[in-house]
Amino acid sequence: MLQLQVENLNVYYGAIHALQGISFTVDEGEIVTLIGANGAGKSTTLRTLSGLLRSRTGAITFKGEEISTRPAEKIVTMGMSHVPEGRKMFPFLSVRENLMMGAYTRSDPAEIQQTLDRVYKSFPRLRERSGQYGGTLSGGEQQMLATARGLMSKPSLLLLDEPSMGLSPILVEEIFRIIVEINKQGTSILLVEQNAQMALSIAQRAYVLETGRIVLSGSAKEIAENPQVKSAYLGV
């Protein structure tokens, strides 16, 4: 079932035309990945979807509702959660408080506790550090915290922006394992990655972004085997 539909999205930074009419969809229960080089517009896409940026034209339909003019905080309540690039956790809040921030839109304490327990199960390391300030965690732990926090709003669609950035290969694998696990629990995922190989290995479908345009789309397998993608992004 179609969950997110983006049609002909145009986003500008001042005079710069950052997204030039991109369209794509995310189905329920899917992992979709957007890959592309630096400056292709991947993060811009996510920021526009979650309402941090405004598109000039184009439509974003989420769960059958048009959301392109809604403020970010409203979109969160609809079940879209954006884990921003660069592990933007709150360094002066404890891990637990960080996670509770993720559940800001929800009010039932019992249900929040339930989600918290589930999140702790996926990220056991965070339970150990629950009293520590976010800023004192290591890079990998911070990424886990940001991802976990994104899950606290019980989203049906999780937007992940570069979860592998700046992490060691071992940690990257761990993060991706968790992403698949989250997906199996029924959350669709829109994954933006520079690490194309990793992203393509877990995604069902993929889109290739180049200077604000989608130049290729298809199943992750097809994309991974595309000779151009291979030479440009996979380094084969």
Binding site: S50, G51, L52, P71, A72, E73, V76, T77, S81, H82, P84, K88, F90, P91, F92, L93, E97, M100, M101, G102, Y104, T105, R149, S153
Partner: peptide
């Protein structure tokens, strides 16, 4: 809590659903 989060990072606070 929303105040503390907003004082640190407004865009991220908005992503948490904070007005």
């Amino acid at each position: 809590m929303a105040m503390r989060a907003s004082s640190f990072d407004k865009p991220t606070a908005r992503l948490m659903g904070i007005n």
